[in-house]
Design a protein around this nucleic acid. Sequence first.
DNA 1: CGGCGGCTTGATCGGTCTCAAGTACGGTGG
DNA 2: CCACCGTACTTGAGACCGATCAAGCCGCCG
Lengths: 231, 231
Amino acid sequence: MTAEFQIEPRFRANQSGLRLTHEALPANPLSDLFAMTGATLRLARNEELYGEDEPAEYAYQVVSGTVRTCRFTADGQRQIVAFHRKGDVLGLGIGNTHRFAAEAVTDATVLMVRRSAVLAAAARDVAVSRALWEHAAAENARAEEHSLLLGRRSAGERVASFLLDSASRSEDGIVELPMSRQDIADYLGLTIETISRTLTQFERDRLIRMQSARRIGLASGSALKQLARGA
Amino acid sequence: MTAEFQIEPRFRANQSGLRLTHEALPANPLSDLFAMTGATLRLARNEELYGEDEPAEYAYQVVSGTVRTCRFTADGQRQIVAFHRKGDVLGLGIGNTHRFAAEAVTDATVLMVRRSAVLAAAARDVAVSRALWEHAAAENARAEEHSLLLGRRSAGERVASFLLDSASRSEDGIVELPMSRQDIADYLGLTIETISRTLTQFERDRLIRMQSARRIGLASGSALKQLARGA
DNA sequence: CGGCGGCTTGATCGGTCTCAAGTACGGTGG
DNA sequence: CCACCGTACTTGAGACCGATCAAGCCGCCG
């Protein structure tokens, strides 16, 4: 929640440059740009990466941890637009200001690159330009699916979808949730109590097994899928 | 924190240029491509332009009328993702199939161009490539605003936002709605009855004046804006 | 002028929110 | 290692908003 984040001391080129050895990020021109020219920035849990309507000088790629983009409404409610995980790029819209705030859900590490550098690279290199388009189109698809999820679907359907989406990133059937119930609620357009009750109900119905609040085993993926589809 | 989302996102990319006149479509490489190489296609009201999961061979630009993109859920509910009006381009996502169906809300005319031709032009010409990115980014902004609208906002807030968004396309304070109440309901994640009741309430509160069901005068734009923000 | 689709209005129901306690957990210091 | 604390999560009771079910009404086009 700090107002200003300090870029100066950490803002030196990441000259390790080549590949993070373990678990490489998918190779594409955009990721390459970050890997080669990005400066590393560390964020503490709940620290703000940038604020809403702030001039958009940099774009970011998540290296570790989870980042949320969100907006606050007049009446103080928070709505979460998206969660960004390893490899995800954020801050790359059109317009000169960020349309949402970005905050660290957990301690996180991101790479930062000047947006002008990205645009310059795109103007020079069609491959970068295409990667930029693909990134925007993928973001768009994600946003559209999210808006479909919020339009007239029950709490059960939303939570089931969320769990399945989270599960799609893990190998086994165990979902690690880096975010709080409040984060989930603000993402799904529900309240914290409803999230909690719905998960409890899922457990009663043997659809999931909660090893802890943030560690959930999917006992019946197919039943969840059915639920998510609005059966 | 001003009513940023009332600015029609696709107009942003156009702000450098002149004001849209009644006739002219915004001048940009993508529109040029449609204007020069597009074939004209006429659609009757409710006619399908393409279906969900259909191979995506063409992209389209609306010349006249209104087109909706939508999806049908397992339980038969329809959810409308977006309304597309004159100048809007649809069918240009990544992936080989259309992720939604597209149908004519009113009788409509569209231009169609092969997606492969668009991609080829983008690979050749950086200006086209950039236009493609800007289109995707603008669509993304629109989708994100839509998902924010659907997350935990009251019926009044949703309808007020919808009216203001519609009004942003007309000079005077008169909104012409090309779509039915059912269309609006499926777009806002509400029922047809709730739309109707909310509009009636707005009229009672002297926020709007319904000249007919599809022709609505905004009597107090500022009060509506306040409502839309979640006052 | 008659019929039909689209819109409005009314009564009731149900799901989710709200308010209010309780409980488990992770972290910290003794 | 344990006691403590604060935060996060769960659970309960009741209220409220929008959905549902059910008529009516309007306007449009034949």
